[in-house]
Design a protein around this nucleic acid. Structure first.
Lengths: 217, 217, 217, 217
DNA sequence: AATGAATGAGCCTTCATTCAT
DNA sequence: GATGAATGAAGGCTCATTCAT
């Protein structure tokens, strides 16, 4: 099995991440995308709470009414962005997991898709870390929780497959996700906050190997 | 080398963590401690930004003037709490590291002290995760950064000791901290947010073993 | 002279008072009537100011543009409804007054037509009480005032008729309208707000008698 | 029994009605009273809804925070003013009713105290007519309703006294209040809106006589 | 040390209205 | 005639902070 490194994608409209283009396609959604892009930048620069609606407006040349017409509230805007990011991240994982067969390939798929996505979408990744906490306290908490449950079931399903199950240490199941993804996540956070220099994807094979050594029988 | 599990500590004054008692001892600082305890609870319940001064006041039966007399500002209060927590966490690590001799014992010391502290001080741990981001943007950012640097140097010093250095895989140095602490941190976050049930300290030996397998030559 | 009780009228189009049908007849004005009906309901449920254009739209399945095409502004809509109600009320009074000959019959005509109309059109009546105050402050104030003056002159004319004038107490003229209509109005308000149960028309003869006793020589 | 006419009261602090002075006495409540006075004036000039917090602030030289410190919300301010007015009106009626013995004197007490109060407190009276409708839809509706019930019971008690009950026409009880007060109320509204010139108190004896003729056996 | 009334910049949001299609 | 996306002025309210006592 081969893994291609994903490079940071180019964006046709200046400043608007490709991911948003994918989520809200078409010319008519242009302004909507510009608002999302502006919001993403502001949230990352100042944090979600400190970002004011006006900051987002100034950066996107939109009007208040328009923002509220499309997203209903600041919280709605944050949620839209969050679900967008989660969707994109999930798509990548699903693709990689579909190509994995052995347990070790599965572990690699998780680690690779994680670090590749963070490296390709640093802005969205940075936002994700803030937004999850914020959204779980707001009115979109239920929607988020439901989504998380669905994803967890899907991934857990792959790993629980009887044919591969014997390859792991007989350790508590609830420990497994942390053992596989913990190191990659920790390094990704460090990279996003500038504490380390090399992008996570550069260390993908080491991170995957380390994860595998941790869980392999 | 032996490691004793640390149990959640009892608090003499209702609701005020022992850690605060240690940091601000004496009868005269009673109100100060009560404010800190109240703030901690509020920050964890609603988040730092959404917590208002009034919420903290209501829970601690203090007056506005009093709070400002002791902490100068809301940011000062957050910083005081943060440094308190960091201090406590550092003390525990220093103790454990002092008893460690081999490289493997050092890795265990890091993992053990981390999960033990989180398990013993879940409230402070939860707060720590929020506060670091908040403080790095405020007026206490420099103080925090300086402190971090100091701690990093201290710990890195231990691991760079020539006598033990050969025991590790020849991987990039900036990857090491993530490999050692990433899994424990990830599981701790999961526990604090209720996604898993067993307290981190219960899995300390497995987490230490996994970390060691990841980095050992 | 005989007075027939007026029963609450049936409406052909669901929910749209007959009065509006009369004021804006024809199939082409259907949507216009639906908007008026919706507005009337909203104004009575929430008050005029608190009612938003969107509320009216939602209830009438019309579009913003359409509403503004027909009524020009929110105030225009309120005014249209108000003049509609005043017109209807006036028509009834004119009819009854035309059949009255003695002074006592005139007093009865006033009281009867008032309570009968309120009982037959409770929705419009409720609206009337709000709308008069609102419109007197807006751009249709002049139109309303002029209309009021015209009506007052007309009615006053009937009562000033020399042949009947001697039947009244020699009290100040400006007191007369209040003495005749005050009790009926007060009871009507009480009924519309639910404070009393019996519809005003049920007590029409007593109210007319009370009014007559108050003013008769 | 004698009835003294009540003249419009002088106010020590410029522009603040005596009634407010009575309701919130003391030097420390000075600013609170100034806010209430300013709000009263604004509400009467522009209506309750159209009045903005800023208008009230500008007229009273208070700060936003202060207004919200004392009244919690715009609705709270309206309610405070309303209850103040109702209290004052009630006090006057209670006094007059205490001096009345025969049924006719009771009717006079009602009419006199009503017109005297409106004449003495035209500002509060004008406000009363708006505020009742506004408050019955807001969060203070329950408090208002309870108050109304209490007052109604008290007054009804006086009129239901067996010794006097025989003096009235055997008409429905729910009609009685309207018959007694309806004319006075209608004339008061007319005066407050400028449609008639003479203050209600000037016609007090006629209004009382008219009411008595309406209900007397 | 302690109190809490007072301050006011600034926030999120609403909503009547316009206008290009 | 009909549509509804877009506009933006303005509103109610929050909340960290100050300061006289």
């Amino acid at each position: 099995m081969k893994h291609k490194e994903i490079s940071s994608e180019q964006t046709p409209s200046a400043g608007v991440p490709m991911v948003l283009e994918r989520a809200y396609p078409g010319v008519r959604a242009q302004l909507k995308r510009r608002i999302l892009g502006s919001a993403l930048a502001c949230f990352n620069e100042h944090g979600i709470e400190p970002t004011t609606i006006e900051m987002i407006l100034a950066r996107s040349d939109a009007s208040v009414g328009n923002l509220y017409h499309h997203f209903g509230s600041k919280e709605g805007l944050v949620a839209a962005l969050l679900f967008c990011a989660l969707e994109d991240q999930a798509t990548l994982l699903d693709t990689e997991l579909a190509n994995a067969h052995s347990m070790q390939e599965g572990v690699s798929a998780l680690v690779y898709s994680y670090v590749d996505w963070v490296t390709a979408q640093p802005e969205l990744a940075r936002f994700l870390f803030q937004a999850r906490a914020a959204v779980s306290k707001g009115p979109y908490a239920a929607e988020l929780q439901q989504r998380n449950k669905l994803r967890a079931k899907l991934v857990m399903g792959w790993f629980a497959e009887p044919a591969r199950a014997g390859a792991l240490k007989p350790w508590p199941f609830e420990l497994l996700p942390s053992l596989i993804i913990g190191q990659a996540e920790n390094y990704s956070r460090a990279w996003l906050s500038g504490r380390v220099k090399a992008p996570p994807a550069q260390y993908r094979s080491m991170l995957a190997e380390a994860a595998w050594l941790s869980v392999a029988l």
